[in-house]
């Protein structure tokens, strides 16, 4: 009988993930440090009345680093390393089908993401002066971050599964990481300021809306969510196709 995703497998994946020091630094420490540095620099030239809003916007933007570092880069690096050593194959030979493995990995990653987001929230609230959010706005941000994380997970798993080597996978996911940062206004240039064709591409990504526009409804203001929902569907579908192709490529052929 095929082994299903179970608590033991999830604990194994949490141990496996925790053994990767990359995600501890880039997924937990780095976003906090970045938000502190950028906040202190950005508020120097901002009127006192605007400071709280600017800092809050920066904190929302920098929260995107958590799923990007943990799922897109950290997970892709870890999993491609496993593929290179044929570890998933050994798991399959011991009766864990790919769906169980991927589910356990996803749950473990989401648990780690939750801890990282909690640490980030505590650090930001304790160290910075932030606007108090409307409850629904906060929930929308958290749900958006989880959705983005799941999409990045699918993307990272699919890319690693197709490329099968640590080097090429790392190049692709690292390039995507910086591309997303650039397009979504995390590298100092607002998405609105990008040249038109690039701006069009940027606004197909949910991260662009989170980074640039979530501050607009942070305290309960009205907001048109349709473009955000469409961007989630677009990126989710793209990641889903890549994941599906990777499953198909790696299927077992037994008559």
């Amino acid at each position: 009988m095929s082994k299903k995703c179970n608590l033991g497998l999830i604990i194994y994946e949490i141990r496996n993930l925790s053994g990767n020091l990359f995600v501890h630094f880039f997924g937990v420490i780095f976003p906090i440090v970045m938000s502190m540095i950028i906040s202190s620099q950005a508020t120097k030239e901002v009127p006192e009345s605007m400071k709280q809003e600017v800092v809050t916007a920066i904190v929302i933007t920098m929260s995107l680093i958590i799923p990007m570092a943990i799922m897109l880069m950290g997970y892709a690096a870890n999993y491609s390393n496993e593929i290179e050593k044929n570890v998933p194959l050994r798991m399959r030979l011991f009766g864990y089908n790919e769906k169980s493995i991927i589910l356990a990995k996803l749950i473990a990653q989401l648990i780690f993401l939750t801890v990282a987001m909690a640490v980030y929230a505590v650090a930001e609230v304790s160290l910075l002066d932030l606007q108090k959010p409307a409850l629904l706005s906060l929930i929308i941000l958290v749900v958006s971050l989880y959705l983005v994380a799941i999409i990045f997970f699918m993307l990272a798993h699919g890319v690693a599964n197709i490329l099968k080597k640590f080097g090429p996978t790392y190049v692709v996911t690292m390039s995507l990481y910086f591309l997303f940062m650039m397009l979504c206004g995390m590298m100092g240039i607002q998405s609105d300021q990008l040249p038109k064709p690039i701006k069009t591409i940027a606004f197909t990504l949910p991260m662009t809306y989170i980074s640039n526009e979530y501050i607009d409804f942070w305290q309960g203001q009205s907001y048109n969510f349709m473009p955000v929902i469409q961007s989630f569907i677009f990126l989710g579908a793209l990641a889903g196709i890549i994941l599906f192709v990777s499953f198909y490529k790696n299927r077992r052929k037994i008559a």
């Binding site: 095929s2 194994y12 570890v87 050994r90």
Partner: peptide, 18 residues
Amino acid sequence: IPEQMAAHMQFNEYVSTM
């Protein structure tokens, strides 16, 4: 079914994180 076949392959690697 695949799970009814056990295999010691030529190269057997596992994670080294635990």
